[in-house]
Structures are given as structure tokens and as C-alpha cells.
Design a protein around this nucleic acid. Structure first.
Lengths: 245, 245
DNA sequence: CGGTTCATTGATTCGCGTCAATGCAGGTGG
DNA sequence: CCACCTGCATTGACGCGAATCAATGAACCG
């Protein structure tokens, strides 16, 4: 089921708003940044702006991949399931992140909105055609894909070889770093996902995540002002734990 | 240290051999397949053929990425290390696989030859320049990167959520499938890597890998005619185990 | 044939998972 | 405004699967 017809999703043709790209918050950080004004207009022509309610499923694993998206606002989680329900979250997307660089025929994972989400959606077929005419966009996508591959390798090291402590420390560092990259404070950081989501991202259970939070708090590395906020009190120590130090 | 100057590596300029691409075994499966004869000639012009001895390190993690390669013969392992020596192998490359799609400034992992290896090496700078003139090559690289991303997601599910049994079954299926894709028999399969390598790829220890091999053999799913060969006796059962069934 | 390397097997330990209870905040309705 | 519910998060007791430590076995090689 595509998000266009899904419960919790509404679409707006960009033409209905005046120059939706000019005041776009992620214009400078997303894939669009490499486009000339004339090229940008062509991208805009095939785009639809979507508003998703919390919990909306954008698409499911192995469905034919009909759309690619740019996350403009909010957060999205990507995950894979085993038949018995075990879940592995393979990534969290924040504003400026591109969903579907892989350009494969079918989705390799399911995607779900984690709060209110606004995104800029492109039909895959049309975008692929556009790619042949906008080599700089294709080059940029290859760059993005490269970054994702590097992140995936880091995650494999984390899942295969790190302890629960090291995993959580790595996760908190990563979120902090990505917040800073989007021009937000690097502490306190905001966690839009539940403990269960963090567990499914780190290959742990909710309980272990919770216990490890408490442990890092007790030793003074972090503070937990609320359930969704984390103060990074000793950044260096956190990074050291993350790298197995 | 680049492989060009490393012990165990010797380089041959392709010009020294007549038309090295025409009789290339991986011509039809590697990234080169999309190139027209004239384009292929330009690729060849910047290529060096390398011969590596077993155990030769091609490059190490975080080194500036000066070269990309196409594996022509043999197998290569990619891995990341933690400061205390814990290792995660992030991939095995076989003939036809491309090393360094990411195109990043520095390598995200170390690479080591697992036996006698022949590869076709390109300076990154020159290849990047060539990319701007060969859009079909860039398109192909994006395709390859997409495939790698899909494989990486599968591996995350494996490392984060599968049991030892499921991991080994997934691994054996994957190797069998890749062998078939290269036109080789899908059983018995040949494992050019040690039990320790398999463990470091699956996030397990040598001992657990060994015990799990024995277990799968005892239940008749596989046969172990030698240490490096695996007979897949019940393929469906193996696939089922791999998917958590 | 001794030496080296790697795979296998066994005994024990330990980190994390599982099961279960309690705590806590936000929302709802009386 | 408060009693109650509901959905997370936290904490505790216990068990299990894989790691660790240690010994033995099998293949290879000069």
C-alpha cells in the first residue's frame, strides 16, 4: 500500500503553493542542493508534498518501489522483520535525509512515520528519467549512497561486535552528531523514538536499553532530564565507550 | 600503504598485454558490462592489473582512498577493527565484485587478499573524472551501490536479530547463491575463508561456528566433505532455517 | 616424522534475554 | 480536581545461548 492512499497521509501538489523550494528548510542539506534553479524546477514538477500522521506506514518491505522521498520535517524509521516478528530497525531518517537511494525495483525495508512527518515525494520512474538528464543529481545520489554504505558498515561493527554499553554510547553519539549537522544543539538531544525502537536498532531488548541508560546515567556520562531527552555530560567519555575504550 | 608498494603485490600495465578486456572472465558480470568498446578502451587506459599473494593487505581503514578495484580472480575480505582487536568482517568479494563503490575520500574498512588474487585497479581521481564523461558507468555504479545497500540491510538483520544457527544457514545460502550467479555449481560450495573469518563475518566466535556446522551436519541439512567444502543436502530446509522458520 | 596451523569438542562462565512486577506520565471522564 | 486507565519505562529474579578457557584431533609441510 502506497502512502498516497494510506490512512494518515495527505498529499499536496507543489504547484498549489508558490515556489515551495525557495523557503524549504532542507534546501541546503538535501540532495537538491546540487541543482541549478532550472533543474530544481524540473524536480519540483514531479514532486508531491506529503503530510503523514504518527505511525503511518509509507511502504512495506518487498513492495514494488514506486516512490522516493526527501524527509523535510519529522522522523522516519526503516525496518525489516523476520516471520516470527523479530524486528531490526536499519535506520532512522531525519530532515534532509533521502529515502530510497538504492533505486531498486522493490523496497528492501518497511518505512514508518515516527511523528508528524512532512516529505517531498517523487515517482521513481520519473526521477530515474530525470537522472539521465541531470548528471549532477545522479552524482549526488552516488555520494549519498556512499555515505549510507559507510554508515551501514559502522552499524555492522556495532551489531556484530560491540557490547550493549558500547552500542548505546555509539547511538547517542551518532544522534548528537546528526543533530549538530542539521544545525541543532548537540546536547541535550531529543530522541523521537521509544526504548523498543532503540533496542530494535541496536539489536537489544527494551529492558537492556533501559538498564544501560540507567548505568550511563549513574556513572555521570549522561543525564536523563525526561524520557525523550538526553544530556551528554561527558562527551569524550561517551565517544570512548562507543569505540570500545 | 597502497598495494602497489606492498609486499606480495605485483602490477602489470594493461598495455603490456594485448587487449586484456576481450578475454576477461568477468567482462559480462562486472561494472564494465555497460561500456561501449570505445568507453571500455578509456577504462582500460587508466587500469593496472595487479596480482596479490595470500594475505596481502590492499589498504587499511581510514587511509586516503586512492584506488578502486574490480576483483577478477580470487577472493578478498573487508573488515573493521575495534582498538582492542575485535574484528567485524563487513564483506567478502568474489570475481566480478567492485571494491570501493562508495567513492569516499578515505576507506571505511581494510581489505585483504584471501588467496591468490588478480584485480583490475583504477586510480580514484582518474576514474571520477571519467565518470563525468561516462554517465552510463556512473549509473551502473549507483546500481551496484544500491545492491550493496540491500545486502548491508540483510546483514544488519542477521547480526542484530538472528541466532547462530540462522546466521550460518543464511551465510551458506548466500555463498551458494553467489556461486551460482557466477556460473558455478551451487553445491558443493567452496569456502575460501577460515572458520575465524566466518565467525567475524557473522558476529560469532570460531567455536560457535564450528559447533553450528556440526549441528547442521548432524541433522542432515549439509554435508562436510572437507574443511573448505560444504554440500547443501536440503536446500529448502537451509533457506527456512536462514529466515527463522 | 615432528612441528605448525586450524578445526573440533568439552566444561564453565557471563552478558543479555525472558518473564514478571512496579513505577510513572499523560489523557479521559465523572 | 481527582480517580482511573493506558501505554511506556524501569527494576528485579532467573535462565539460556553464545563466549571463554582449555584440551584434543586432523591436515599440511618441510
Amino acid at each position: 500500500m502506497a502512502a498516497g492512499s494510506a490512512a494518515g497521509a495527505t498529499a499536496v501538489k507543489p504547484a498549489l503553493r508558490e515556489s515551495p523550494c525557495d523557503d524549504c528548510a532542507i534546501r541546503e542539506t538535501s540532495v537538491c542542493e546540487v541543482l541549478e534553479p532550472a533543474q530544481l524546477a524540473r524536480m519540483r514538477a514531479i514532486a508531491t508534498i506529503m503530510y503523514l500522521e504518527p505511525g503511518t506506514t509509507l511502504f512495506q518491505e518487498s513492495e514494488p518501489a514506486e516512490h522516493l522521498c526527501n524527509v523535510v520535517e519529522g522522523a522516519v524509521k526503516l525496518y525489516k522483520l523476520l516471520p516470527d516478528g523479530r524486528r531490526q530497525i536499519t535506520g532512522f531518517l531525519f530532515p534532509g535525509d533521502f529515502l530510497g537511494v538504492a533505486l531498486n525495483k522493490s523496497y528492501a525495508y518497511s518505512a514508518e512515520a515516527m511523528g508528524n512527518v512532512r516529505l517531498c515525494r517523487f515517482p521513481r520512474r520519473k526521477l530515474e528519467n530525470l537522472l539521465t538528464e541531470l548528471p549532477n543529481l545522479e552524482h549526488r545520489l552516488l555520494e549519498v549512497a556512499g555515505n549510507e554504505l559507510v554508515a551501514a558498515q559502522d552499524q555492522m561493527l556495532l551489531l556484530g561486535r560491540k557490547t550493549a554499553r558500547e552500542r548505546l554510547a555509539s547511538f547517542l553519539s551518532m544522534v548528537s552528531r546528526r543533530a549538530a549537522a542539521r544545525g541543532r544543539p548537540d546536547s541535550p538531544i531529543d530522541l523521537p523514538m521509544s526504548r523498543a525502537d532503540i533496542g530494535d536498532y541496536l539489536g537489544l531488548t527494551t529492558e537492556t536499553v533501559s538498564r544501560t541508560f540507567t548505568q550511563l546515567k549513574k556513572q555521570g556520562t549522561i543525564g536523563l532530564p525526561s524520557q525523550t531527552k538526553v544530556d551528554i555530560l561527558k562527551r569524550e567519555e561517551l565517544e570512548e565507550i562507543a569505540e570500545g575504550g
